[in-house]
């Protein structure tokens, strides 16, 4: 069943701030096998002009996707998550995420489309720091594959 178009433009409020920890950044960098010292060594980060270690570019997805859960699990929207695949992902950065950031994510439904029985949902996550300054915007396209004919 096609998703309700009236959800386009709906904004989901930010929840509690996520505090970015140095050791979480280290764990993530190790998990993707990236040995750049700017993720783990404060002095190396400072040499590039950053106040603390920074996070790899895709790190912030963990936060934005958790927040997108409000949309995905919204019973009124009625998305069948068991049929969902990640279609596209994009980030636009004002600055890199860094250790010590306290980040909030505001999720917006940008578009709902139906193609060949698939529901396509575009969610935009706006990430701001504690001062209210923009850090990064994440666009996530989710595709709910059509249910098989029963």
């Amino acid at each position: 069943m096609a998703l309700d178009q009236s959800f386009v433009g709906r904004t989901y409020p930010p929840t509690e701030p996520y505090e970015v920890g140095r050791e979480k950044i280290r764990e993530f960098a190790q998990a993707v096998g990236d040995t750049s010292p700017v993720y783990t060594d404060v002095e190396a980060a400072k040499a590039l002009g950053y106040a603390d270690v920074i996070a790899p570019p895709t790190f912030v997805f963990s936060l934005t996707f958790r927040e997108a859960g409000q949309v995905i699990e919204d019973p009124q929207l009625g998305l069948d998550y068991s049929r969902v695949v990640h279609g596209d992902q994009k980030f636009a950065y004002t600055r890199p995420v860094r250790a010590g950031d306290r980040l909030t994510v505001t999720s917006v439904i940008e578009a709902i489309k139906s193609m060949a029985g698939n529901d396509i949902l575009d969610i935009r996550g706006e990430v701001h720091d504690e001062a209210g300054e923009h850090v990064v915007t994440a666009w996530t396209k989710l595709v709910a594959r059509a249910a098989e004919e029963g």
Partner: peptide, 9 residues
């Protein structure tokens, strides 16, 4: 890595 302005796939 902080010099990435945007990135999409």
């Amino acid at each position: 890595p902080g010099a990435v302005v945007d990135y999409g796939v």
